Amino acid sequence: MEVSSMENGSSKADDEVKPTRLSLTRAVMFIILFNVVLLCATISGYFYLASMDKSIHARIGDFLIIGGATIAIPLLYGLGDLSKGKPNFYYI
């Protein structure tokens, strides 16, 4: 801190950007809106899948399971077990 700024009563901490109430409100509203969108997408997806034939419903379910496994297995492999001397497939 410089002597001139100390004499004037200001400090560098005053120059830092502090979160305002408006940005906090925007963040809370964004989180709430994001959760509402996820809920609406889940409900509409459920109604769409419930209206399909059983064979198409089963094929979409298989696709979702295979897609989830394709994403989850490399993710878990990369995560490992977070300890020394253990194999990477400890969690799988």
Rank of each mutant, 00 (worst) to 15 (best):
L64V: 15
I73S: 04
V3Q: 11
Y90S: 02
N8H: 14
V37G: 01
M29C: 10
M52N: 03
I60V: 10
F63V: 13
L39I: 12
Y77A: 01
E16A: 11
T25D: 15
K18Y: 04
S55Y: 04
G78S: 05
Y90P: 00
Y46Q: 05
L79T: 06
V3C: 05
L75K: 02
L75C: 08
N8V: 09
D15M: 14
Y91I: 09
M29E: 14
G9I: 07
P87S: 06
D81P: 05
T25Y: 09
S51P: 03
Y48D: 06
I43L: 15
A58V: 03
T42G: 08
D81T: 01
P87I: 05
D15S: 15
K12Q: 12
L64A: 14
K18C: 03
L24G: 08
F89C: 10
Y77F: 08
E7H: 06
G67Q: 01
I32A: 14
I32Y: 06
I43Y: 12
T70K: 05
I56E: 05
N35S: 14
G68L: 03
R59C: 05
S55N: 09
L75F: 08
T42D: 05
R21I: 10
Y46T: 11
G67T: 04
L79F: 11
L38W: 09
G85I: 01
K84G: 02
H57A: 02
G9H: 06
R59Q: 14
I32V: 15
L82T: 03
A58P: 02
T42K: 10
K18I: 13
S10L: 09
D15I: 13
P87R: 12
V36N: 02
A27F: 12
L38D: 01
F34N: 09
L76I: 09
K54N: 14
L82C: 00
L64S: 10
I60Y: 00
K84T: 02
N8L: 12
G67L: 03
I65V: 14
S4E: 13
E7S: 10
C40A: 15
F34I: 01
S44R: 09
G85A: 03
R26V: 04
M6N: 04
I56L: 05
S10D: 07
S44P: 04
N88S: 09
N88K: 08
H57L: 01
S10Q: 09
